[in-house]
Design a protein around this nucleic acid. Structure first.
Length: 489
RNA sequence: GCCCCCAUGGUCUAGUGGUCAGGACGCCUCCCUUUCACGGAGGAGAUCGCCGGUUCGAGCCCGGCUGGGGGUACCA
C-alpha cells in the first residue's frame, strides 16, 4: 500500500496561518486513537451511530501513517460516556447506547469510561489553570455578558475580572485567532477577540463539557477527534484549553448533520430515528452500517454495497461530504435486501428465528429470501406455513370466488393427489399440464391455489409452497378453501 | 445581533479547469414470469442556488448575494 490521504493531511497541518494564530500542528501518527463520546441524554440515533461508525472505521482502517496500518498496527477505539450533565444523563440511556453499539457491531477497545469518574483529574487541572492565572473565578452571568456586549459591541468577546469566587472562566487571549485544519472542511479560524471567556467550571466547582473533553482527550492520548459539526464552534474553546496546558491537541474532523425526510434536523418524531427502531423494523446491522456510511461519503464511483471490512479499508476522512444528508429509508430498504441475500441460508434463518421468536424456519426462508427486503417482511409472506392461511376475505372472494375458480381447485387437488413424489418439480409439471388441459392462463390456476393455501395473494412460489406444506396439508387447505367458497357463494 | 459552517436531478453521491455532468435509491416502460420480489434492458428527471470575476475554456478557482444550518448556557 502506498502513502495516501494521511500524508497530505500532515502536510496541510503545517500550512502557515496568520501570525498570532494557534493552529493544531500535530505531526503524522502511525496509530490512530479515536473515540466516540455520546452524552446519555437520549437514545442513540442514526446521526450518532454514523459518528460511531466513522470512528470505528478509522480505528480498523489502514491508519493515517505513511505505511498505513500494516506497519503501524490497528488503531484504538475508545468509548467515553459524557455524563457531566447530571440533570439529563441517565443509566437507562447509557445502557441503550451500549446496546445499540453492540448490535451494530461497533465494538470498542477501551471503555466505556465515565467522564464523571474522571472528576479528580479535572479538579487537579482546573486548580493548575487557576494557579497560573490562565483561568479565573467570575460571578458574571448571562445578563452580565449581555450587558458587556451592549457596552463593547456584539463582536467583542466577554472578558471578566478575577473575583474571589464564582464560576471559573478560561482566559482567552485578546490578540490573534484560534484555528485548526479540520480534516473534512479544511482550515477553520476563529478570531480570539470575538470569543467570550468560556465558563469551564460551575460555581460549585463541577467542570463543564468543553473543559472536561479537552482534558479527557489529552489524557486518553486521542489522536483524532471525529464528531458532529455542531461541535465546530466548541473546538476553539477546547483548543484554548490544550494551549493553556501547553499540550499538543488532537486532529479534528467534523461530520455534517443528518436530516429527516422533511429536510429538518433528525429527531424522535422522524420514524426510524433511533438504532433500536431500525432493528425492530427488521433491518440488518450490516445494512444499517453500509447505508449510514454512504450518507456522507462515497467509497467507489459506481458501487454501493460494502462489508465493514471493505469500508474500513476504503474510508477516508478527506472524502467525507461537507453538506448535511437526508436519511432515506427507501434506500436503506434496498440495501438491506442486498445484505439479506448475501447472507448464507443458515445465517439468515438464525436471524429470522431470533427476530420472529419462532423456530424451524429454514425451509420457508429458503423459498422466501428472494422476496423480502427486511426481516419484518418474512412473516407476512411466509407465516401461513406455520399459523395457517392469512385472513384476507377480500382477496379470497375476488380470487377463489371468481368464476371457474372452484372447478380449478377441484381439478388441482385431484391432480396433486396422484403425484408419486410431492416435490416442487413434480408439482410444477402436473399443474402446468392442468393449465394446458383446461386451456387457461397460468395465473388462473396458480392464483386460486395460492389464495387457498396462503389466504392471500402474495406468497413464495406456488410449487415450492405446496411442496413445503406437504401433500396432506395442501389437500386439507384446498378442501377448506373449497368448503369456504361453497359457504360464501 | 454576533461567530462559524454548508449549497451537483426528489434523495444519497462521483466529478477536483477541457467527452452529451457518471452511479445508486425512488419513479415510468419493457423483458423474465405464477403473485410479490429478484434479475436484465431502456426512459423521464440537473439552467451544477444566484450574480459577478479569473481563464481560450468553470460544477470545479476568487468575490459578493440569497437560501439553509450550527454555536452564542454555571447543556453536551
Amino acid at each position: 500500500m502506498k502513502a495516501s490521504g494521511g500524508g497530505d493531511v500532515g502536510a496541510d497541518q503545517h500550512r502557515s496561518v496568520a501570525p498570532g494564530t494557534s493552529v493544531s500542528s500535530m505531526g503524522l501518527r502511525s496509530v490512530m486513537r479515536v473515540r466516540f463520546a455520546p452524552s446519555p441524554t437520549g437514545a442513540l440515533h442514526i446521526g450518532g451511530a454514523r459518528t460511531a461508525l466513522y470512528n470505528w472505521l478509522l480505528a480498523h482502517g489502514p491508519g493515517d501513517g505513511p505505511e498505513g496500518g500494516a506497519a503501524a498496527g490497528r488503531g484504538s477505539f475508545v468509548l467515553r460516556i459524557e455524563d457531566t450533565d447530571r440533570e439529563r444523563s441517565t443509566e437507562a440511556n447509557v445502557a441503550q447506547i451500549i446496546d445499540a453499539l453492540a448490535w451494530l457491531g461497533l465494538d470498542w477497545d477501551e471503555g466505556p469510561v465515565s467522564q464523571l469518574a474522571n472528576t479528580p483529574r479535572h479538579q487537579e487541572v482546573l486548580a493548575q489553570l487557576l494557579a497560573r492565572g490562565q483561568a479565573y473565578h467570575s460571578s458574571a452571568g448571562a445578563e452580565d455578558v449581555k450587558a458587556f456586549k451592549l457596552a463593547h459591541g456584539a463582536e467583542c468577546g466577554f472578558r471578566g475580572e478575577p473575583e474571589p469566587s464564582g464560576a471559573v472562566r478560561l482566559r482567552v487571549p485578546q490578540e490573534g485567532e484560534t484555528g485548526f485544519v479540520d480534516l473534512v472542511r479544511g482550515e477553520l479560524r476563529f478570531p480570539n477577540a470575538s470569543m467570550d471567556d468560556p465558563v469551564i467550571a460551575r460555581a460549585d466547582g463541577s467542570v463543564l463539557y468543553n473543559f472536561a473533553v479537552a482534558v479527557d482527550d489529552l489524557d486518553a492520548r486521542i489522536t483524532h477527534v471525529v464528531r458532529g459539526d455542531d461541535h465546530i464552534s466548541n473546538t476553539p474553546k477546547q483548543l484554548l484549553v490544550f494551549r493553556a496546558l501547553g499540550a499538543e491537541p488532537p486532529l479534528y474532523a467534523h461530520l455534517p448533520m443528518l436530516l429527516g425526510p422533511d429536510g429538518k434536523k433528525l429527531s424522535k418524531r422522524h420514524g426510524a430515528a433511533s438504532v433500536q427502531e431500525l432493528r425492530d423494523r427488521g433491518y440488518l446491522p450490516e445494512a444499517v452500517n453500509n447505508y449510514i456510511a454512504l450518507l456522507g461519503t462515497g467509497f467507489d464511483p459506481d458501487e454501493e454495497f460494502f462489508t465493514m471490512a471493505e469500508m474500513a479499508a476504503r474510508f477516508r476522512l478527506d472524502r467525507v461530504s461537507r453538506s448535511p444528508a437526508v436519511f432515506d429509508e427507501r434506500k436503506l430498504r434496498h440495501l438491506n435486501g442486498q445484505h439479506l441475500r448475501a447472507l448464507t441460508l443458515d445465517e439468515l434463518t438464525e436471524r429470522l428465528e431470533r427476530f420472529t421468536g419462532r423456530s424451524g424456519l429454514r425451509e420457508a426462508v429458503a423459498i422466501s429470501r428472494e422476496k423480502i427486503q427486511t426481516l419484518a417482511d418474512f412473516w407476512p409472506l411466509a407465516g401461513f406455513f406455520f399459523d395457517g392461511p392469512a385472513d384476507d376475505p377480500a382477496a379470497f372472494d375476488r380470487v377463489v370466488g371468481a368464476a371457474g375458480a372452484r372447478e380449478v381447485l377441484l381439478q388441482a387437488r385431484d391432480a396433486l393427489a396422484v403425484l408419486e413424489h410431492f416435490d416442487a418439480g413434480s408439482i410444477e409439471r402436473v399443474l402446468r399440464e392442468l393449465v394446458d388441459r383446461l386451456g387457461l392462463k397460468p395465473g388462473e390456476v396458480f392464483q386460486p391455489l395460492r389464495v387457498a393455501i396462503a389466504g392471500t395473494t402474495v406468497s413464495p412460489g406456488i410449487f415450492e409452497s405446496l411442496a413445503l406444506l406437504g401433500r396432506e396439508r395442501s389437500r386439507a387447505l384446498i378442501d377448506a378453501a373449497l368448503a369456504r367458497a361453497q359457504a360464501r357463494a
